[in-house]
Design a protein around this nucleic acid. Sequence first.
RNA 1: GUCCCCUUCGUCUAGUGGCCUAGGACUUCGGGUUUUCAUCCCGGCAACAGGGGUUCGACUCCCCUAGGGGACGCCA
Length: 493
Amino acid sequence: MPIRTRIAPSPTGDPHVGTAYMALFNQAFANSQGGQFILRIEDTDRARSSAAAEEAIFQALRWAGIEWHEGPDIGGGYGPYRQSERLEIYRRHADELIGKGAAFHCFCSAERLAEMRRQQQANGDTPRYDGRCQSLALADVRARIERGEPHVIRLATPEDGVCRFADGLRGSIEIPWRQVDKQVLVKSDGFPTYHLAVVVDDHLMEISHVLRGEEWISSTPKHRLLYDAFGWPMPAHFHLPLLRNPDGSKLSKRKNPTGLDYYRRAGYLPEALLNYLALMGWSMPDERELFSVAELAAHFDVQRIATRGPVFDLAKLDWMNGQYIRALSTDEFMHRITAWALNRDNLAPLAPLVQARTERLSDVLGHVDYLLGDRRGLSDADFEHKTLSSADCRRILHYAGQRLDELPSWQRDALYGALKSLADAMGVKMRDFLAPLFVAISGRAVSLPLFDSMAYLGRDLVRARLRDALTALGGISKKEAKRLERDYRQLAH
RNA sequence: GUCCCCUUCGUCUAGUGGCCUAGGACUUCGGGUUUUCAUCCCGGCAACAGGGGUUCGACUCCCCUAGGGGACGCCA
């Protein structure tokens, strides 16, 4: 049987380093076995998915050096590879499940479900759907559907016993059926949820091995139920460890740069990033640490994947990146620098800003240093201000970061609008409000216009600089964070 | 709270019952090469979570405890 693996990102936020991580292992495994590696877009969340985010995934993964054999952008024999284009397939399979009694229609309101969960939680139970609609009479169900009553389709689950399934890395895993929720498979808008779509697609696309994050372990019983109901063999599953923040929690943008774009903008070489990622949970048989994706595939063995969640350590990535940079020929080095940022396209948006402030050409570099490279390190003294206290600065930076995270688009005018309204809501004059932001972003009180700078740097770099500035100001204690959180919500949006 | 997963230096890891006085890498500290810096080289500090078993022998197998993480959505 041919080996086929896949990566199935959701086009919601910015492309995540975790996506590249999973892609890397799936690609390495497929290539090591002479198989295929597939990219599938899981855009079943209508509210959050966007075409722009999908395009960003293609670009970011391509930049990283991930190459797929089949996908929405290049086609293949098992398409379509975009779940929003497979709705008819899911509908058919949902009907089959209903017919087999493996799923049922549910008309419960969001309010009832919330109340039910609240009570279960109060009793110390695992929140689960109580099965009320499961016993509805067939005629009743049909009538309500015909009346146009909103409904979903849920998975029927056993009440007793345990679900046992094999994990290629962890051995046999047992989860009591009582823990498994009667999961929604089809939403009221007719779109499938992840659980239905992933099983149907993995089967139809003949995926032989599923290498996914360990956050999926607890939903695997649902998937097992679906495979059984359809009478399909279950692909081999391998749950890889999750990348961690330095504090051990799941890697998150709040605590660590997580966007692939950050690493590109910050000047990392994609081959160094992938090499580093490969070391997160995997090791070469001979323990060598510097190797290419081709060498990874050549020596790949799933059994060498560790199960402990590795902490993403920027210091070691920096070292590794240096190794790769110094191994480049001078020619290649120059090529990389220009391809990275020192080229016409990349400099074009800065030119008008800089030109207006230039008397001699030699002024130029001093204006753009913090945009093309990193800015200098900060200390609390940099934030001294005639009216703002250190606590004021922390508050402004914290709120600004929060507001920016909520912002769907990342252009100058949108940035200005969001922060202007925030300053107004806080009752701080824009002139004062901007002071700590200038320091955080450019490292000085005077620089090129702030919003142009932020737009140019991009979301990840700006987030990293704000976080770094907050650290320079002494950081925010748990208590202060809580208070800030509460006050922030009170501000009119 | 319930269920599941995980547990070797600060961090990434090697280790599949005797090769372990636990190896490598990053970080860090010290030294050397270099007109400075960086690179590079040499050296040092630093770990088997705790407790019970099994065994002639446990880092390696089993159990318990503790700690960490994840899941518990009409998100994926």
